[in-house]
Design a protein around this nucleic acid. Structure first.
Length: 225
DNA sequence: ACGAGGGGTTAATTATTTGC
DNA sequence: GCAAATAATTAACCCCTCGT
């Protein structure tokens, strides 16, 4: 899949020049770019066509597959404290994905060892109301490093849908888009202290999702362009 | 009259408890 | 100790309001 890129607090410059971040950024970019249109349409056809409205589940599943294959950790916890990390209520305190070049070991973090570059990833196809929260999570993850190691080590990547993909992918009209995230970033600049790259996924060349009403429910169907 | 957007609901997934 | 049943927790998406 192809995408547009928006850079917050020089994230792109850092990602493309700092040795450690370069490696992580390339790994991420390659993961997304390597998802082919055929794979998405095939996945949708076999799993969700006629049952779900949008392609979001297929895209989510394929991103997860690619990133975990490349050693990104799925749904890591942000904090290590009871109440925030126990399985009962830690869900909203988890990132979608993260990868660090160094150790995730708790002991080493406490020992104030060399900062290691790490990137957190949020895939945000949900309600526009949670746009702000999606932007804050990478900051929380980064601030943790900041406090423990006294060094700026965090960077966030947010995966969103462009307006066109939202329309052609059958996404619900409430999902926050690439443009919505860019709108949020300007006024929130001073609160969002971590460099972030916002990715706007582009629509597909060969197909789109046609939404039809089946027995009062909206369902998506493949339609080749 | 229509479409965008937000709040609320629910189906499906994940966790926990219970029973064997 | 393991499986089945039950409970909790989302995230997708439905519906209704509001602005144009």
């Amino acid at each position: 899949m192809y995408f547009d890129v928006h850079s917050h607090r020089n994230a792109l410059v850092i990602a493309e020049n700092e040795p450690g971040y370069l490696e992580l950024w390339e790994s991420f970019k390659q993961a997304i770019l390597s998802i082919s249109e055929e794979e998405v349409s095939e996945h949708f056809k076999t799993n969700h066509e006629g049952k779900a409205k949008s392609v979001s589940k297929s895209i989510n599943a394929l991103i997860k597959k690619r990133l975990t294959e490349n050693d990104w950790i799925s749904e890591p916890r942000i904090f290590g404290e009871p109440g925030y990390s126990d399985t009962k209520r830690d869900k909203k305190w988890r990132l979608d994905f993260a990868k660090s070049l160094g150790s995730h070991d708790h002991f080493e973090l406490e020992q104030n060892l060399e900062p290691t570059p790490g990137i957190s990833v949020e895939v945000a196809f949900n309600n526009d109301g949670s746009t702000a929260w999606n932007l804050i999570k990478p900051v929380l993850a980064g601030e943790l490093n900041h406090v423990r190691k006294e060094t700026q080590t965090g960077m966030g990547i947010i995966v969103t849908a462009t307006e066109t993909l939202k329309r052609e992918g059958g996404f619900d009209n409430t999902v926050g888009t690439y443009d919505d995230f860019k709108m949020h970033l300007r006024p929130l600049r001073n609160l969002l202290t971590i460099p972030m790259i916002v990715i706007g996924l582009k629509p597909f060349d060969t197909f789109e999702i046609e939404v039809r009403k089946i027995e009062n429910n909206l369902r998506g169907f493949l339609k080749y362009k």
